[in-house]
């Protein structure tokens, strides 16, 4: 019954998250509400790590393949993309690298300087 229980809890949280999305008029998806909800349940001790651990681990591990169907679906937007293909690709490549570098460098510098201060 372990997996049935874990799966039921995860689906119940996902469903509750959908309800929250239905009630709150913000452009925030159910998955984000669900992530925050599960995080709060774990932090408050309402839910123990053991009651979802294995099923959550399975879902997180297979997550990369869940993006493939949507990406394959981009085939259908080819006509919309083609006119601005060059600026779009340049933009995506440049912005993604810039954001990674800025976030990563700032975080690393701040973490290290705080570690040094703490000694």
């Amino acid at each position: 019954m372990k997996y049935l229980k874990q799966f039921s809890i995860i689906i119940a949280i996902s469903f509750t998250a959908e309800l929250i999305k239905y009630l709150v008029p913000l452009p925030i998806p159910a998955s984000i509400y669900g992530l925050v909800l599960l995080f709060l349940l774990l932090c408050t001790g309402a839910l123990r790590e053991d009651s979802i651990k294995e099923s959550a681990g399975f879902l997180v591990e297979i997550m990369p393949v869940m993006f493939i169907p949507a990406a394959v679906g981009l085939l259908g937007s080819w006509d919309a993309v083609r006119p601005i293909l060059l600026p779009a690709v340049a933009m995506i490549v440049a912005v993604t690298i810039a954001v990674m570098a800025v976030t990563g460098r700032i975080a690393q510098r701040m973490i290290r300087s705080e570690e040094k201060r703490r000694g």
């Binding site: 689906i11 949280i13 159910a30 998955s31 992530l35 774990l42 099923s55 879902l59 393949v65 869940m66």
Partner: peptide
């Protein structure tokens, strides 16, 4: 596969916790 994306994203809370 796409259907599982919401429950999987929800589960990202566990490593965070």
């Amino acid at each position: 596969l796409s259907y599982l994306l919401t429950p999987a994203t929800v589960c990202l809370a566990l490593p965070l916790y």
